[in-house]
Amino acid sequence: MVLRIRFHGRGGQGVKTASRIVGTAAFLVGYQVQDSPVYGAERRGAAVVAFTRFGEEAILERGVIEHPDLIVVGDETLLANPAAGVMVGQETATAIFLNAESAQPLVEQYALSPSTIAWDLTRRTQAIVGVASALSVGLAAATARLVGLIPEAQLLSAVRRELMELHLPEGAIAKNLDLASEVFNALPSLEFPLRDGQETPQKISSVLYEGLLRGSPSILNTGNAEQRQTGAWRLERPEVNFEQCTRCGLCFLQCPDGAITLDQNGYPIIDYDHCKGCMLCQTLCPVQAILSKQEVRSW
């Protein structure tokens, strides 16, 4: 048997680390394990996918998991983005885990399988670890518990190992271990009807040679990246307090993305369709006129 888990999140949320922790924990239990992230043009905030497979025999499957047993979603806003492929293969999945306050509205809105479990990892991660976006350990703990094949002890040693490898300070590791225990004990274990056999890898498709004009397409438009709404990357939302703002223009100059413009009176206007929520404008504002709002709550 092979158990297939697919993790979805945004770059910076620790989805890759979550898949590794689950892999290491399963390995410590004695399973054969494979884990891998998709590498490509992913960036902090952009959609990221990672995979963990484990089972009793050698795992000969390779590549992306198209038919997962469990789909783990670190960021519910990805459901609205078809390109993120969160729902791919949900028909065969036994369960979906969502980092969200409650499953019901999302199940209805996105026609998710009724066996969708939601738990507010962001809130607990913020409370225990102090960083709302450091979701790796919470996601791994939820996964370990839901699949039911990984005991808490192995989960905790895997968390410790992986975080030590990332050179996390001891204090931060201790907080993450607390979080892992809490999540592990708060969730139920599910029954996974395990599918025997391994999937045949997809055939490698041959690359067709295209002439220069088609093979290396030209972009004839200018500035059309504006159509990509990077505002969905945001975990925090900067808001300008106009009463305090001195119109110094620093935030306008330093926003990497040019998501701040100045109005006729020189006040900064934030373009929320595109602001990625890096929050450097908040840090640099000399008079603390930029406030941060937790974006998670407003979704």
Binding site: G223, E226, D257
Partner: peptide
């Protein structure tokens, strides 16, 4: 501005700020 927002570079990328400036 000669760069529109909406690029796929990381949030907070210093290289992008430099190019923009």
């Amino acid at each position: 501005e000669y760069l529109s927002p909406g690029s796929p570079l990381c949030a907070g990328c210093g290289g992008l700020t430099t190019l923009r400036q």
